[in-house]
Simulated scan of single mutants.
Amino acid sequence: MNNIAERLQSARQRIQNLCKQAGKSAGPVKLLAVSKTKPVDDIRAAYQAGQRLFGENYVQEGVEKIQQLSDLTDLEWHFIGPLQSNKTRQVAEHFAWVQSVDRLKIARRLSEQRPATMPPLNLLLQINISAEQSKAGVADETELMALAAEVNALPHLTLRGLMAIPAADLDPADQIRVFEQMQRLFVKLKQQYVQIDTLSMGMSGDMQAAIQAGSTMVRLGTAIFGERHKAADD
């Protein structure tokens, strides 16, 4: 396979097969195409192949792509990278989703800076499920529920669920264990807030365990676009 349309078809088929193995319909599992460092022509190619959800890690790069692709009005842009407070306005003004919120300060700024003419900004709270010092994310259930209550009360935002990036070197059994921990947190949150519907977890190397544990959205980059170029400086 050497083109984006073929790789997308293969990714969708793999998701469908994994859903069948897990005994669930493929419908609830969405595919987020991680397009960081990829040119707009690649995104257009994915769009032509039916892809609509795209994830960006770098603020300036993502905003430039959104502006360049503004003619594609049904694209859904997700910000999935670390977000500094001095970059929140750009994200609030351009993206539909932010998957990497783990601090009330960031959520407040996003709410304050979301234009009133735009729909509420969809938020996922990031969980540091593998307790890695190098990664951002909420540390435990107590911290999660406290943050969720604060975020849920903010105007111009809609709390939609959780996101996690587990440690990359886990064996299959540990992958399932950490994803099942995420699923338990997701169910707990869903019991408190009726609008909760998104559990974003699973990439190429751990997608099987993620779907088995109840992921509703997987994030694939290289599997769709091929090897990445050097990351943009943001």
Results as ranks from 00 to 15, higher is better:
194 V>H: 15
83 L>M: 08
25 S>R: 15
232 A>C: 03
72 L>N: 00
166 P>S: 11
110 L>F: 00
107 A>W: 04
34 V>E: 15
129 I>S: 03
128 N>L: 09
88 T>P: 12
64 E>N: 08
35 S>E: 08
148 A>M: 04
131 A>Q: 11
153 A>F: 01
153 A>G: 12
209 A>T: 09
51 Q>R: 02
191 Q>C: 13
189 L>G: 07
190 K>R: 14
51 Q>H: 00
7 R>K: 03
42 D>C: 04
103 R>E: 09
203 M>E: 09
46 A>Y: 00
188 K>Q: 13
222 T>E: 12
171 D>P: 00
46 A>G: 01
74 D>E: 07
77 W>V: 10
200 S>L: 12
110 L>K: 05
28 P>N: 14
217 M>N: 07
52 R>F: 08
50 G>I: 01
88 T>A: 13
166 P>Q: 15
153 A>T: 04
203 M>G: 05
58 Y>V: 02
146 A>R: 15
180 E>Q: 10
90 Q>M: 14
199 L>I: 14
42 D>W: 13
161 G>S: 02
191 Q>E: 12
141 E>W: 04
193 Y>P: 07
195 Q>K: 13
61 E>T: 03
106 I>N: 08
188 K>Y: 07
93 E>C: 07
92 A>T: 07
39 P>R: 00
27 G>K: 15
102 D>T: 04
122 N>V: 03
165 I>D: 05
6 E>Q: 14
98 V>M: 10
209 A>C: 11
229 H>I: 09
10 S>F: 13
227 E>D: 12
95 F>P: 03
203 M>R: 12
39 P>F: 06
69 L>M: 01
19 C>F: 11
140 D>P: 12
192 Q>C: 14
12 R>M: 02
155 P>Y: 07
153 A>C: 01
232 A>N: 12
218 V>N: 05
218 V>Q: 09
63 V>D: 01
99 Q>R: 14
38 K>P: 02
116 A>S: 06
189 L>Q: 06
105 K>L: 08
144 L>R: 05
183 Q>Y: 15
169 D>W: 07
184 R>E: 15
189 L>S: 09
84 Q>D: 10
5 A>I: 05
62 G>C: 03
128 N>K: 09
212 Q>G: 03
150 E>W: 05
109 R>T: 03
34 V>M: 11
43 I>A: 04
63 V>W: 06
51 Q>L: 07
173 A>Y: 08
178 V>D: 15
84 Q>E: 12
159 L>T: 08
110 L>A: 01
